[in-house]
Design a protein around this nucleic acid. Structure first.
Lengths: 192, 192
DNA sequence: ACTGTAGCGGAGGCACCCCTCCGTTTCAAT
DNA sequence: ATTGAAACGGAGGGGTGCCTCCGCTACAGT
C-alpha cells in the first residue's frame, strides 16, 4: 500500500552484493534456482543449480549459506511479485479481481512445485511471506465476500490451499488446468 | 463387473512367491513401501524400504527388480481396493455415491503423495490402473450427471485431477482437507 | 531325516550430493 | 597503474543411495 509495502522485498534485496561480478552471479543463481526448484521441487541439487548458473559451487554457498537461504530467497521474490499484482487488480470488479489474482498465483513456477512445503514452513521468512501474501490476497477475498460474490463459510486459507493443490498437480495441458481451477472456484462462488 | 473385474489384481497377485518365507517378505516389503512412499513420495530410498521391512536389500531387488516395479505394485494394490469400493457404493444415491468414492480416493496414502506422478505414468501397469480407475469411477460420475446432479461441461479426468491435487496438498488438519474438498466439489454440482 | 534348490542378506563398487577450504582471479578505489 | 580486499571456483572428504554378486540359510518334497 505504501511505496515499499513488503518487508520481504527488502530482506531479499539487502542480500544482493555490490560488486558487479558478484551481483551478476547472485542474479544468475536466483534464476537458476527458480528453474531447478520448478523442475525438481525443493530438493533440487545445489550443485546442479551452480552448474546452471555457470558458477562454482563455492559461489553458491557464499551467497546462500544453506539450501533454505536459497529457497527462501526465490520464494520471497515470487511472493513479492504476487503482492504487487494484488495492488494492480485492486480496482477491478470484486470477483474478477479475486480470480485474476488467483490465476496469477497459479503461474508461479517455484510456487507450483514447492508451495505445499512452503505453506507449512516455519522459518521467519516463510512466516513473513505468508503474512504478506495474506495481506495482499485476503482483502480481495474479503471484498468479494462483502459484495455477495463469494460464500462466507470458508476461510481465505482454505481457498489458498485449494488453489495451491490444484496448482501443484500435473495436467494434460494448461487448458485443463484452467478448466479445473474454474470448476473449483465455482464452488467458492456465492449463491450455490 | 464380472467376478475378476480388474486385471491389475491378477498382475500383482501373480508376482507373489509361493514359499512361505518368501511370501512373508514380499508382503512386508509391500507394506514397508506403502509407508515409505506415503512419507517421502515416489523417490523414497529403497534401502530404507528394505530396512523397514526387516529384509536385506537383495531380497527387495529379487522381488522388485526396479523401483518402478515396486511402486507399481503398491499403486496397483490401492487402485484395486478403490475399484472394489466403487462396486460397494454403486446402489446409493448418485451424487452421494460419487462423493463417497472420491473421499475414499483421498484416503489412499501412497496415492496421496504420488498420484500426480502416477497420473502421467506411461507404463503398461499405470495405463491399466488408470483404465481400471476410470472404469470404476467413471460410471458413478456419469450416473450423477444423468441424474442432473453433476454439471456436464467437464470430464471425469478433470474431476479426478482436481481431487488428486487437493489430496496431495498439506492441510492444517483433516477437517480442513474435507472442507476444501467439499468446496471444490460444490463447483462440480449441477445448478450453479 | 535328507537334500537340492529357491531364497536370503549384506559387502562392495559406482555415482551423486553436500559442504568446506584455500590458492587464484577480478574488481574498484586511489 | 597499483594494490588490497572481495569474490571466485573446484578439489576433496564424508555421507548416502543404487544395484550386483555370491557364499550362506532354510524350506518343502521325498
Amino acid at each position: 500500500m505504501t511505496a515499499q509495502p513488503f518487508p520481504v522485498s527488502e530482506i531479499v534485496a539487502s542480500r544482493r552484493p555490490h560488486r558487479k561480478d558478484a551481483a551478476r552471479n547472485y542474479d544468475a543463481l536466483l534464476a537458476a534456482a527458480r528453474e531447478a526448484f520448478a523442475e525438481h521441487g525443493a530438493e533440487a541439487s545445489l550443485e546442479d543449480v551452480a552448474r546452471r548458473a555457470g558458477v562454482g559451487i563455492g559461489t553458491l554457498y557464499r551467497n546462500f549459506p544453506t539450501r533454505r537461504h536459497l529457497f527462501e530467497s526465490v520464494y520471497a521474490g515470487e511472493v513479492n511479485d504476487l503482492c504487487r499484482f494484488a495492488e494492480e487488480v485492486a480496482d477491478r470488479e470484486p470477483w474478477e479481481a479475486l480470480t485474476a489474482w488467483l490465476h496469477r498465483f497459479v503461474d508461479y513456477t517455484v510456487t507450483k512445485r514447492a508451495i505445499r512445503e512452503a505453506l507449512d514452513g516455519e522459518s521467519e521468512i516463510f512466516l513473513a511471506c505468508r503474512e504478506s501474501m495474506y495481506a495482499a490476497g485476503g482483502p480481495l477475498f474479503e471484498r468479494a465476500r462483502e459484495a455477495g460474490r463469494a460464500r462466507d463459510d470458508i476461510a481465505f486459507d482454505d481457498l489458498l490451499r485449494m488453489v495451491a493443490g490444484i496448482t501443484a498437480t500435473n495436467f494434460l495441458d494448461d487448458a485443463q488446468r484452467d478448466r479445473v481451477l474454474s470448476i473449483a472456484l465455482d464452488g467458492v462462488r456465492a449463491g450455490r
